[in-house]
Design a protein around this nucleic acid. Structure first.
Lengths: 326, 326
DNA sequence: CTGAAAGCGCTTACAG
DNA sequence: CTGAAAGCGCTTACAG
């Protein structure tokens, strides 16, 4: 229709519409085509375009359940970076589940330009016929690991070191850890780093263990089950693998009349926006989500353009607030 | 490749893969095809399929910036409902922007089975060549309005009525309102309903007005600007158009040493999960996001199947907590 | 500088 | 019950 209206061939329209008309189509004809496009409100059919071209302009970001506001930040970072060049679409996994290889497979069908996978499950091989970048996927046999594959991660060590030293300074010698139930490798690393730093600092991590899904309710319920055992064990501080989990601890402490930080100090990971307004405000290892998204998107663009990306880890940093007596 | 391996024609493979082989393909051949599919890990190409068929199995949900955890709930509701039959993909608008007609247009290109639009901007005509369902889009000239179009909304009146009565019972006669800057019609309705109920109850809404983007920081900053004026105006309670905004009020009150609810009662809309752990816990008009998502998805499925959907509004309800002295 | 034609991987009447 | 063929709307060598 556009070609007819502009009085040219379909091929010429395609060239103009895709901006490949430089030196191939004369200016007056290009103008006529553009006018026709505007008048008809024509937009190129993505399915047909992707089919003919072999891949489209979609970038897919697969993320775990979005109830964790952290991902909103990641998404923002990705969006700001891929910009207009690509169309970003998101997919979320089932509540509480991490992205797995099958999710990547499902989106390969769409012939996207690339796929980003946030906090993938451990032990999944995330390869595809299109470029894949993993976010927050330390260790494991992911392609991003060691083997020169592609992943963007946080460097937690300095911030966790600061957290443990902070707790030590406040006199804590025995602490509890509330882990997530997630299969994401990032949670394994958080725990491992924390325990290593505690050992180095002479702090004992209680054997009483607790795990919960990443919701406040689940965390509160898990906390209720172990809070007495923690107290009997002499635990004076609890670190949660995510702020959302820490909120559950705060809620239970509030209900039971346990003073925070007086009787129990609490800290988390993520530094969600709402962590500045909890009762009390929450100390947290801040993971800048937008930076992660940005770095991952840049990596993907570099893969698509064949240029070499820099491979730096992103720094996390400790934010001290009232929940640990700061 | 699959056809070759199974020793049949491409057409037969297509039928089997799409589950249209009943009475068209013999059992042994179908089995052979399925085996070949498994062995080769074949998945049908979405672009080609959508092109040939005219539309694919994608359902697109366009939502405003996801930093509001409310949308995570909506997404969950949609996901649980469209299930395996469709592939749900999400798109988010720029931070602080509402979905507009151009967003719908961009996703039409993908030839989805349908498009869901959450909290669209006012005055946009959200029509497309595929079925569109609007979520939380009261009033306006949207297709869902009056004209028999498709929208799923909350019925705020009873809950807002309860909120205002609750404030009245606590002795408040002069209240402030912190609005969002969003162009979404739902915010207009929240304000309008609130003011109407206040008038009916004999409560005065302060002329001192404040608006902010839906982030805690923006709300805190807006609150700082008007808090004195509110107090001089005799305001004893502030209602915010969203919990995220109310968090900003809580933060500023905390910093300024204004007792909540003693000197200033605070309430919001949404009832986010974290509203149970704020300092103090926040009274809020609960908008069940998952229900909204579920209802919208059901509506879309009904449109696709040509069946008549029921058209009920979803009830909101007041959750009373400490921030209003409950 | 421009256009005719093949082909992307599917689906679906249609003929056998 | 099965397969050959047209066609979905594009893109891209290629020939002019």
């Amino acid at each position: 229709m556009v070609a007819e209206r502009a009085g040219t061939s379909i091929a010429t329209v395609s060239l103009v519409v895709n901006g490949k008309d430089r030196g191939r189509v004369s200016a007056p004809i290009a103008t006529r085509v553009r006018d026709a496009v505007d008048e008809l409100g024509y937009v190129v059919d993505h399915a047909a375009s992707a089919l003919a071209r072999g891949s489209g302009d979609l970038v897919v970001l697969i993320a775990p359940d979005l109830s964790n506001p952290f991902f909103a930040e990641v998404i923002r970072g990705v969006r700001d970076t891929v910009g207009d060049r690509f169309q970003l679409v998101l997919s979320v996994t089932e509540r509480g589940a991490q992205p797995v290889a099958a999710d990547v497979r499902r989106f390969e069908r769409l012939r996207p330009a690339g796929i980003l996978v946030d906090a993938p499950a451990a032990g999944e091989s995330m390869t595809a016929s299109v470029p894949v970048v993993l976010l927050d996927a330390p260790g494991g046999d992911a392609p991003g690991d060691g083997a020169g594959g592609e992943a963007v991660n946080y460097d937690l060590s300095p911030a966790v070191h600061d957290l443990v030293r902070h707790l030590h300074d406040r006199g804590h010698r025995r602490v509890g850890y509330l882990d997530g139930t997630s299969r994401a490798t990032t949670f394994g690393v958080r725990r491992e780093r924390f325990e290593a730093e505690c050992t180095a600092a002479g702090i004992t991590v209680s054997e009483v263990s607790a795990r919960a899904d990443l919701t406040i309710d689940a965390a509160a319920s898990a906390t209720e089950h172990v809070i007495e055992a923690w107290q009997e064990d002499g635990v004076t501080a609890v670190v949660a693998a995510a702020d959302t989990l820490a909120y559950g601890v705060l809620r239970v402490a509030g209900q039971l009349g346990i003073a925070v930080p007086g009787e129990l100090a609490v800290a988390g990971f993520d530094d969600l926006p709402s962590s500045s307004v909890t009762a009390p405000a929450l100390t947290s290892v801040a993971l800048p989500g937008a930076d992660l998204g940005r770095a991952a998107a840049l990596r993907l663009l570099a893969m698509l353009d064949g240029t070499a990306p820099e491979t730096a880890s992103l720094p996390a940093r400790l934010v001290r607030r009232a929940s640990t007596g700061a």
